[in-house]
């Protein structure tokens, strides 16, 4: 499986679509922090803050993350390179998709993590940028004080990155079923926007709320940011990893006897 993992990463590295997704994310992250600072200092009007938020991780990671998953799985079927890996067995193929997807999403959130850390370490004053802050990464910059333990800061980033992996993992079985990158991107982006609304609706119905608590869509800035507790962050990571496993199982159930064209 290690060979398949490395070969798949190589395939993704060579994919034009994947490169575009990473390029967009990295540029968006840089622009997000720069423009957020400009909102904070008044160089960009507050009315424009919503546009800057669009460059934040909440929007960009869902868009580019679902595109990455769509390319990861879809191009294997479109190019028929799945024929080259079928000898590994269907279970290992799905396991490989899950492992590669996790690595790629972690790489995707990296610029926001780095941007946030740079702002903290350089002491950049982001006050006034709250209007753009629907993001743990900006939330950490705004909420950081010198008495915050380094361990808590690191755990906050780790937990949120893991939660993103968990949240996006719903695209894996969708990608295995649809096999079309565009369709997976559309689904992923739509679901990303919907998940926040679902959280609000679920909180009004006890049974739904209990179910929702078992998913990575339940977590928010208060729980995973610097004001959250260590236990909340660790629980979020465990729930997310378990959810990724569940999505992997669902993908395998869809794939195990499917015809491969």
């Amino acid at each position: 499986m290690k060979r398949m993992f490395c070969a798949t990463l190589y395939r993704m590295w060579k994919s034009t679509g994947a490169r575009v997704a990473f390029f967009i994310t990295y540029i968006a992250a840089i622009l997000y922090f720069v423009l957020a600072r400009m909102v904070g200092t008044g160089r960009i009007e507050a009315a424009q803050a919503g546009s800057v938020s669009g460059l934040g991780d909440a929007m960009v990671i869902w868009l580019c993350g679902s595109l990455i998953i769509g390319i990861l799985v879809g191009s294997d079927f479109e190019n028929k390179t799945i024929h080259g890996v079928i000898g590994f067995g269907r279970k290992k193929i799905i396991g490989n998709y899950v492992a590669v997807f996790a690595v790629l999403v972690l790489m995707l959130v990296l610029p926001y993590t780095i941007g946030s850390l740079v702002c903290i370490l350089a002491g950049v004053d982001m006050s006034g940028a709250e209007q753009t802050a629907i993001s743990i990464y900006m939330g950490n910059v705004l909420g950081y004080t010198d008495d915050i333990a380094l361990g808590k800061l690191v755990l906050s980033y780790l937990s949120y990155s893991t939660v993103y992996v968990g949240q996006l993992s719903i695209c894996i079985p969708v990608a295995v079923k649809l096999k079309k990158p565009v369709a997976v991107t559309a689904f992923g982006f739509f679901f990303g926007m919907l998940s926040a609304l679902l959280s609000t609706l679920a909180s009004k119905v006890e049974i739904l709320d209990n179910i929702y608590r078992l998913t990575p869509y339940n977590y928010n800035m208060e729980q995973l940011g610097l004001n959250g507790s260590y236990s909340d962050m660790l629980l979020a990571m465990m729930v997310s990893i378990a959810f990724v496993g569940l999505m992997g199982l669902l993908a395998w159930a869809l794939f195990r006897r499917a015809e491969i064209k």
């Binding site: 060979r3 070969a7 190589y10 994919s15 028929k80 390179t81 024929h83």
Partner: peptide
Amino acid sequence: SLNGSMTAKENLKFYRML
């Protein structure tokens, strides 16, 4: 079973890695 965005050598490299 070929990846269109790669060259011949890159496709062969992919399969060698597998």
